[in-house]
Every structure is written in C-alpha cells, then in structure tokens.
Amino acid sequence: MSGYNFAYLDEGTKRMIRRALLKAVAVPGFQVPFGSREMPLPYGWGTGGIQVTAAVIGPDDTLKVIDQGADDTTNAVSIRRFFARVAPGLRTTESTAEATVIQTRHRIPETPLREGQVMVYQVPQPEPLFRLEPRRAETRRLHALADYGLMQVKLYEDIARHGRVASSYDHPVMVGERYLMSPSPIPSFDNPKMHMSPALQLFGAGRERRLYAVPPYTAVRSLDFEDHPFVPLRANGRCTLCGSGESYLDEVVTDDRGGRMFVCSDTDYCGTRQAAMKEAAE
C-alpha cells in the first residue's frame, strides 16, 4: 500500500501512543488514556491492539497474530495481512518461538514466552470495575484509592450463589499489588502465565481509548480468597489431534448426533506437537 506511512499510523500519532506506553510501563496496571484513532476496521476487531502494535513494530520485527489461540481465523489473518502490507520489511510468522511481537485476542500462547518478546493484547473493556460501577469518574477515584472492595464483594457473591468464583475468563488481577486490572478476556487458565512473565505485556483498548502494561517479572495475582483460592479452569480431557493433557482446549461439535471432540486452542502449539509425533513415528 503506497501512500501510507510505515505501519499505517502517522508519526505524530505514534509518538503520542509511545509516550502513553512508556507511562503505562512505569505505572504497571494503570490505564493511560490515549487519543485512539479511526482504523480501517471496526471497533471490537482489535483497533486498540493494532494501534499499540503499529507504534511498537519496526522492519526488524517478526509479528505473530492470534485470535483465540488460532493463527488462521479471520481476525488473525486480516490483521497479519494488514501489517504485512503497511509495514515493508516486517516478517510475519505463526511460530510463537520465532515472533518478537505477538498481537493476541483472548489467549496467551502455550509455548512459554521469553525475554525480548512483546505481547500486545486486544482489550474490549479495560475497566475491571465497569460492570459494578459504570461511572468512569468514580472508577478513577477507586483506582486512585486502591479501593477494590466492590470486586471482592462480587467474587464473594459468586461463591455464595454458585459455590465458586463464576468468571471463567477476564478474571480480574492485581498488578504489583497496587492496581486492579482486566487481563482482557483471556481464559482464567491463562492468568497464571502473566505472573512474572519474562515478556513485556501491553494492552490496547481502541473504543475505550485506554492502554496499559505489565512489565516483565511483575507480580500478577488473580483475585481470590484464602478459603476459596483461585483455580484456573480447563476442560477435563486431551486434545484429539496432538494428545496434549496440559493445553487449553476448545470443544468442537463434529456432527448433529452429539459427536464432539476437544482440540488445542493454540494452533501453533498443536501443530508443532503433531509434527514432532509424526517425525518420531517415522
């Protein structure tokens, strides 16, 4: 696409996002407002993540984009293709190990992240207290006071009604024991991967015009109670394709007579394991 700046955004916008990102890293878990721009795809499709990625990537980077763990779904393919077109020199990959920047919607890869990698999360609703307190002015004050009693009460009511914490995704976390943060709608299974991760984690919410960050090696604690500790949820089964008993599983309906199977949500992880099994068999 000629006529566009490298990575689509103009330099002024990139500088504004870059300044906001540096402050976000300096105050882990705090939501920094930024001047979110119109992007060539609708809100809800990752406009926040795309703007963060565009401000971060350079021609030396290797970009991986996943949507619910998969590299080959519409959202992932179109965002990857978008950057391949507007960022000349940028390489794209489906391999977690090869990537330097990973933009993700709702998953963290199974392959452990390493230093030097940047995770960019697409965030629909950055405010973890949104469903409990819709007034933005009020939630800002609650964050300033580190007053998160509302969320503890919500978790308590879950336990009183259902016998356990009812959120299986987007389970709120405390970052550095200071700010309550939405981990974006990742399954609670992925929450422990954020704790002391060697990679830098950046979060962008385009419609809500907020971005935030978790630096590497930062404490990320899923909210819970001493007598009802946080338990990451995972379907009880094995992947039909690669046999993994550790990965996060998607349930796939295979026919209209009740047939179903579990497969890994992370396509790169599953594919790599299948290739290794095939090689070992030969």
């Binding site: 990139k14 870059r18 990102l21 540096l22 890293v25 300096a26 401000a55 971060v56 350079g58 230093e115 030097g116 830098l200 960050a213 630096p215 590497p216």
Partner: peptide, 11 residues
C-alpha cells in the same frame, strides 16, 4: 530509538 527506550523502561 523508542523500542530501546521501551525495553529500557521495562527492564
């Protein structure tokens, strides 16, 4: 330059 500063700020 930004990327170096971002890495520096993160570590």
């Amino acid at each position: 330059t930004f990327r170096a500063v971002l890495e520096a700020m993160a570590r």
